[in-house]
Amino acid sequence: MNDITVYTTNTCPYCTMLKNFLDDKGIAYKEVNVQQDPIEAQKLVDTTGQMGVPQSNVNGQWVLGFDPNSIMSHLK
């Protein structure tokens, strides 16, 4: 079972592309909208040092941006 969390905002086109990619592949994920959750947004910055979205945590590995190849490489 894969553990995937995707950090997004409302206005990010790459976030939508990433979610569509995962949906198309039938890969389950949890979405955290950092625009609506400032506490999670701060935790994300503290953890990764990155402000940008999308960021994905795939089985404990961080992937920055819309990077399907990296995401697939971390799947079980």
Rank of each mutant, 00 (worst) to 15 (best):
V53H: 08
P38D: 05
Q42R: 11
P54I: 11
Q42E: 14
A41N: 12
G60Q: 07
P54W: 03
Q55S: 04
V58T: 05
M51A: 11
Q61H: 15
Q50D: 00
G60L: 08
G65K: 07
E40Q: 15
D46M: 13
G49M: 09
N59T: 11
L64Y: 12
Q36E: 15
Q55K: 06
E40F: 00
S56N: 10
I39H: 09
E40Y: 00
L44R: 03
S56H: 01
Q55C: 00
I39M: 10
Q61F: 08
V53E: 02
K43Y: 03
T48E: 08
Q42N: 10
T48H: 05
P38H: 08
S56E: 04
W62G: 07
D37I: 06
V63K: 01
L64V: 09
V63D: 08
G49D: 05
W62M: 12
K43S: 06
D37F: 09
G60Y: 13
D46C: 02
L64E: 08
P54A: 10
P38N: 06
V58G: 02
D46V: 12
Q35T: 04
M51S: 11
G49K: 12
T48G: 05
V53P: 02
V53W: 02
K43F: 03
G49A: 10
D37Y: 05
V45T: 08
V58A: 05
Q50G: 00
S56D: 03
L64M: 14
G52F: 09
V53M: 06
D46R: 10
Q35K: 02
S56M: 13
L64S: 11
G60A: 04
G60P: 10
Q42G: 03
S56K: 03
I39V: 15
V63Y: 11
Q50R: 10
W62Q: 11
